[in-house]
Design a protein around this nucleic acid. Structure first.
Length: 288
DNA sequence: CACCATGTTCCTTG
DNA sequence: CCAAGGAACATGGT
């Protein structure tokens, strides 16, 4: 469940649950998840430490800790990859089959489960240092976006996935933002005029904000957290009841556009699916 | 069996 | 240097 809104909702849920908790055990059950660190390094950094806060940067979760006797501050970095989830596990609940990391917190445990193991739980902040601005913060202006796009010949949709341009947009919300802005995903970045850059910036922010507020309405108490990805992608709840759709184009190939009624199409860019409405998102700017 | 999948990184080719 | 394409990672759903 891993783009900025899903991570944001997860962080808002986890922070109050974890703040002040002491890490009493650390179990790295898949070595790969800790790369480039070793499990021993993770244990040394976290065992016995107290969690001070959980924050987010782009799609990354930051676990800020302080050593209980050393008083030294540190941070662990989490990334959910494609299929990662984190939630608190009740004492009697069984570990899921793909539990990659388990932090014992006394009564409960924090579980990082990841079926494909593309995620990460490490001490390396070098990737975070390279991230572009947060799209929901003031540094992400239309002028900044325009200036950056001017320097790239890539297709817009592909460029939006560049985490050094802006942090946190993934394959789903890239399509959603372009549809909302009425801009074709195939336009070369440097061709986007300033007024369209403004629309795109506003659309990115609106799409992310809406997804966060939608996700925030989902109850995330303890093991309920397991189901949040299902809610997010507008499929079905655990009970099988249909949940409101948040996505306007993503995954809707062949269905009608909710804005104009035209047919939504799927294309492949940089090896990944792009969904768009040819009518709402013309390649050429309509002048007058 | 086929193809698809919310991400990142590396490698090759042009 | 840039862009594009493919592969890798690893598992599951349809």
């Amino acid at each position: 469940m891993p783009e900025l809104p899903e991570v944001e909702v997860l962080v808002r849920h986890l922070h109050p649950c974890l703040v002040g908790k002491k890490i009493q055990s650390v179990s790295i059950r898949r070595t790969r998840i800790a790369r480039p660190n070793t499990p021993e390094e993770i244990v040394r950094a976290l065992l016995g430490a107290k969690i001070e806060s959980v924050t987010r940067r782009g799609k990354y979760l930051l676990f800020h800790v302080v050593g209980d006797r050393t008083g030294k501050h540190g941070v662990a970095v989490g990334h959910l990859g494609m299929t990662g989830r984190m939630y608190l596990l009740a004492p009697n609940d069984a570990l899921p089959p793909h539990a990659a990391v388990v932090l014992g917190l006394g009564k409960t445990s924090l579980v990082f489960e990841d079926t494909r193991y593309f995620g990460r739980f490490c001490l390396d902040i070098s990737t975070i240092a390279r991230l572009g601005p947060e799209p929901l913060e003031n540094a992400f202006t239309a002028e900044y976006l325009f200036e950056q796009l001017r320097q790239s010949r890539q297709a817009l949709k592909v460029k939006l996935l560049d985490q050094e341009l802006v942090a946190g947009i993934g394959n789903i919300y890239a399509s959603e933002a372009l549809h909302r802005a009425g801009i074709s995903p195939f336009v070369r970045a440097f061709r986007l005029p300033l007024d369209a850059s403004k629309r795109l910036r506003d659309a990115i922010r609106a799409v992310l904000r809406e997804a966060i507020s939608f996700g925030s309405t989902v109850p995330l108490n303890s093991s309920d957290t397991k189901t949040d990805a299902l809610f997010f992608y507008g499929r079905k709840s655990d009970a099988g009841a249909p949940v409101a759709e948040v996505l306007r184009v993503y995954g809707r190939d062949g269905l009608s556009c909710c804005t104009c009624g035209g047919l939504i199409r799927r294309a492949v860019q940089a090896g990944r699916s792009t969904f768009y409405c040819p009518r709402c998102q013309p390649v050429m700017r309509r002048i007058r």
